[in-house]
Structure formats: structure tokens, C-alpha cells
């Protein structure tokens, strides 16, 4: 259930230094998140879609991921046109959705999917470990990046631990229902997972102290940004600048 399906590959995007990708993803998403014109959001959507296409994600996985994340967009589409209010409305069967509500819904869909595409193209193509070290190099507090790297490291173990308990419950005939018993069982399963992870933390901590841990983690591969990376960074910043510049020109939309 937890994996990084897009991080394996050998495209241009996979080879780039995580630091460069982090900066690129951050600038493009900030510009897109702040834009308020449909045209600029649309251009951003197209550019990020091209980036995503170039990173060659597996189509089926990509489709599934896009669907999952767009549930909220769907919710916006269902609710916003009917509740937004405003003077102009269009007649649609027996409903009267407001034009302004539809406009906002379109804008939100373009923006959130544009940012999602940029994220999938730039960040999902790196492993979390590399991103964590990249963040530390970019100035994220060492303790925070340590927390990130270590939670990531232990995530899979804890998830397996929980699944093991869950399997044991199932073998004893536990079927989830709407009952207090179900809630209590889930709580105890989770509580036991907590106890186990607490004990594991203690053991890992002791093991690390024994190996001379002083608060810093040394990554095995320490990529240095190459010329191609700087060129890539330049391209990403250019895209952000272009989108930001377009936001200042007033378009009819």
C-alpha cells in the first residue's frame, strides 16, 4: 500500500539533483497557487502536463493517483456552483448554478491539477530519502529532516507490524461492524502498534548510540549538482517567472 511507484526510472527528471527539483517544484507551485486568472492557470496546467508527460509515469498508476487526488475537486464541482451565489446564473434542468461558482470551480481544478502534475513530475521522481537529504542541504532544520528521514525509514516496519496484528484479529474471527466492540478492537490494535513502536524506538536509539550517532545522518550517495542540473533549474525558474509575469497582464478571463 505504501510505495513510491514513480521514483524508479531513467528519464531526464529522475536523473536531476533532488535539491534542484525541490526548488523548481516549490516555485512553480507557489506561482500557480497564487494565480487568479483562468488563462494563466490554464497555461500553467498545460506546461506542467508536458513536464509530467516527459517524466514518463506508468499510465495506469498515474490515472489511479489522479483520480484519488481529484475527489476533493469533484466535491468542489458538486457543491460550489450551487452554493456560491452571485447574480448571474445559468439554467440547467431544474438547477440554477451560478456562473461565478463555475468559474471558481474551473480555476480550482486547473490550479490544483497543475500543481499535482508538477509535483508528480518533479518530486515523485525522487526517492523520499534523497528528498529528505536535499531538504537538509536547502536549509530545513537538521532535526526536522532527521525526523522525516527516520519516520520514512520506520514507516514500512510499523505498517507491517499493524498488519500483522490485524491479520491475527481476522484469524480470530473479527469482522468490523458499526459497534463499540469494533472501535475498541481497532483502538487496541493501534495501541499495541504504539507500544511496539515505542519499544522499537528505544532499541534503535540504543543501537545508534552504540555506533556513535551524534545527530547527523550521512547519505550514501551525495550527488553534486551538474551543469545539466543548473540548466534544469534555470528552465524551471523561467517557467515560474513566465507564469508570474502573465498574472500581471490583465486578460478578459
Amino acid at each position: 500500500m505504501i510505495d513510491e511507484p514513480f521514483s524508479a526510472g531513467s528519464t531526464l527528471f529522475h536523473k536531476r539533483d533532488p535539491k534542484v527539483k525541490l526548488i523548481g517544484a516549490a516555485t512553480i507551485s507557489i506561482v500557480l497557487a497564487l494565480c487568479s486568472s483562468i488563462l494563466v492557470a490554464g497555461i500553467g496546467f498545460i506546461i506542467t502536463a508536458i513536464l509530467l508527460f516527459l517524466s514518463k509515469p506508468a499510465p495506469r498508476l498515474l490515472f489511479k493517483r489522479l483520480l484519488q487526488v481529484n475527489i476533493f475537486t469533484l466535491f468542489i464541482w458538486i457543491t460550489l456552483p450551487l452554493t456560491y451565489g452571485g447574480d448571474e446564473t445559468v439554467h440547467f434542468f431544474f438547477l440554477n448554478p451560478s456562473l461565478e461558482g463555475i468559474r471558481i470551480a474551473v480555476l480550482i481544478s486547473l490550479k490544483s491539477n497543475g500543481i499535482l502534475f508538477c509535483f508528480l513530475a518533479l518530486l515523485a521522481t525522487s526517492s523520499t530519502a534523497n528528498l529528505g537529504h536535499g531538504m537538509e542541504k536547502l536549509g530545513v532544520p537538521r532535526k526536522l529532516s532527521f525526523l522525516l528521514l527516520f519516520s520514512y525509514r520506520q514507516l514500512f516496519v510499523i505498517h507491517q507490524e499493524y498488519q500483522r496484528l490485524q491479520r491475527a484479529a481476522k484469524l480470530r474471527g473479527f469482522t468490523p461492524k458499526n459497534s463499540l466492540h469494533t472501535y475498541r478492537t481497532f483502538s487496541h490494535l493501534f495501541g499495541m502498534t504504539l507500544v511496539k513502536s515505542w519499544k522499537r524506538a528505544e532499541r534503535v536509539h540504543q543501537a545508534m548510540i552504540l555506533r556513535g550517532f551524534n545527530g547527523s545522518l550521512i547519505p550514501l550517495n551525495q550527488p553534486q549538482p551538474s551543469r545539466a542540473d543548473y540548466f534544469f533549474l534555470f528552465a524551471m525558474l523561467l517557467i515560474s517567472l513566465l507564469l508570474a509575469g502573465l498574472s500581471f497582464i490583465s486578460f478578459p478571463l
Binding site: I2, F146, L147, F150, Q154, H159, Y183, L194, A201, V204
Partner: peptide, 24 residues
Amino acid sequence: YDRIMTVSLLSATFFVASLIHVPI
């Protein structure tokens, strides 16, 4: 740094909690 390991583990456990679906 003495407690950081515990916090990382709890953070991971918190992440796992978000994968647990409870019927309602």
C-alpha cells in the same frame, strides 16, 4: 536528540493511523 527517535517512530505510527479505515 535523546527523544528524537521516539518522536520519529510516533510520527510514522501517526502516518499509519491514517491508513486505518474504521467503519461508520
